[in-house]
């Protein structure tokens, strides 16, 4: 099996940085939501990677065979929870984006100027 080392961690952090970039520098609300979603995916990937053990088996045994290592179950539970939360936040963000579009007729943040100062 090919050894991948820290590559998953690097990819996860790249996703986080890409997402932050989109959130800070994109002007379209939908692209900002995509940015938030990317950060979320990066963090989720990071969590799953934390629990990975090379050649490990799925953590589904009460009395696991001791000869082989198991993948850690907790990060998977965390990730599942985080995915569900992410779904809710993304849906909420998108519905606010829809409302903003209905009110202002645009998704460009530079043109939405009610709240300043």
């Amino acid at each position: 099996m090919m050894h991948i080392g820290n590559l998953p961690f690097i990819v996860a952090m790249l996703l986080v940085i890409l997402g932050l970039y989109a959130l800070l520098f994109k002007r379209n609300l939908i692209k900002m939501v995509i940015g938030v979603s990317l950060v979320e995916t990066g963090v989720n990937l990071f969590l799953v990677t934390l629990g990975y053990r090379a050649e490990g088996i799925a953590p589904i045994y009460t009395h696991a065979p001791t000869a082989v290592s198991q993948v850690l179950p907790t990060p998977q539970a965390l990730t599942l929870t985080s995915i569900v939360i992410g779904l809710a936040t993304t849906a909420l963000l998108l519905s606010f984006a829809v409302l903003v579009y209905r009110h202002y007729g645009t998704l460009d943040v530079t043109k939405i100027k009610e709240l300043r100062g």
Binding site: L93, F96, V100, H103
Partner: peptide, 27 residues
């Protein structure tokens, strides 16, 4: 109200980001 949706979007984006920072730290 126009401003409510706009405010809610901004606040939600920042809240989510702060939550993800915390989650990363927890990880």
């Amino acid at each position: 109200r126009k401003r409510s949706s706009e405010a809610a979007f901004k606040v939600m984006a920042l809240y989510t980001l702060s939550g993800l920072f915390v989650l990363l730290a927890v990880g």
